[in-house]
Design a protein around this nucleic acid. Sequence first.
DNA 1: CCTACCGATCGGTAGG
DNA 2: CCTACCGATCGGTAGG
Lengths: 219, 219
Amino acid sequence: MESASAPRVPATGRRPRGRPRKTLAQRDDGNRRRALIRGAARLFRRKGFDATSTRDIAAAAGMQSGSPFYHFKNKQALLFAVMEEGMRHAVERQQQAVAAAGMEALDPADQLRVLVRSHFEVLLGPGSDFIPVMLYEARSINARQRASLSELRSTYEGTWVPVLQALYASGRLKADVKLARLMIFGALNWSVQWFDRRKEASLDDLTQAALALFIGGNP
Amino acid sequence: MESASAPRVPATGRRPRGRPRKTLAQRDDGNRRRALIRGAARLFRRKGFDATSTRDIAAAAGMQSGSPFYHFKNKQALLFAVMEEGMRHAVERQQQAVAAAGMEALDPADQLRVLVRSHFEVLLGPGSDFIPVMLYEARSINARQRASLSELRSTYEGTWVPVLQALYASGRLKADVKLARLMIFGALNWSVQWFDRRKEASLDDLTQAALALFIGGNP
DNA sequence: CCTACCGATCGGTAGG
DNA sequence: CCTACCGATCGGTAGG
């Protein structure tokens, strides 16, 4: 369907055997692009955006130094792609968790538990470089990109608001809802600085401690 | 006491009048060094360590591009100096706050209030670039420097432990003390990401909300 | 602390 | 997507 044109075969006189090889440039673009994003996420997280060279990223995806710019306009666009992918994934995970838990039937404390647990998953679970990059490299994207991300962010954070309001109304949460939300995200997001998958507690332990800290657990 | 040697005066025949000017290189070294640290703190905070050039830092202190290296071995040493100064200042402020509040006479909830308030001061008060740099550029110092800082950090965090333990023992704090400490610092430290001195709440409001969130306020 | 400078690296591009 | 390359910038140094 896409391979019959054979003009690039060297004129050796022998016909090519087997499935015709695609030119490198024809390899599934989406795949290569994703490989760049994944490698960039890992490197941006480990070394930071400014200390990561586009050559490092290219090498991580098995490419030559100039090739990332075939897929992305510039380095900043790559950073934005990492963040956007991270946020889309986070929103998706959150919605799955909410659906799987049958959120409406739960009392507000258990609703919060679902959201916290899902948040830790996105933040600290396997392959979780995207959101940390988004949280700690926000300085390096431009205003338009920031605005675009903040829409996704509003969707994500919006889910928390009614839960916190219900907890406040019932007296379980004692702090001003707006400041509480900011501080709760801080408490959770900061875990990327100290959490060690190998030692420390499990994500369930963290969730337990967070709930206990914010609303005194599940009395 | 330090000005009688006049060998650098050009032989114009006229004797110098007034207080002899020091050569540039003789100007109070401590002052110049501090100017570099202060400028570096501001720039590191605004643009990040990697995105800040030593030329920027030099210019902020009114120097030429090579001059910072007269005071610091390299850029990393400058970063470390910023962090160390920040931690020393934080420890000092904390001890002052503890002393001024007559800590021993307070109940644990009020002790926590004193620590939280002092922490916000160091984090968000005027001229508070040092600690944010230390919190968000930790990746860029080496192991020896990190070890040196972690001593100061232990001193600072050590003050919190008995307070949290007392709150836990009395049932006011419901979460595991170790995880609670980490999450509390997260909630507070994250504020540098969103707090705006011009809008939002005052540091007292933040303190109030934090206490309410962690231990249900002061019932 | 300044002047003058160096080697290395980096983001990005043209042309295929 | 590769090759070959450019201009700019950067950390750092020698020598005064």
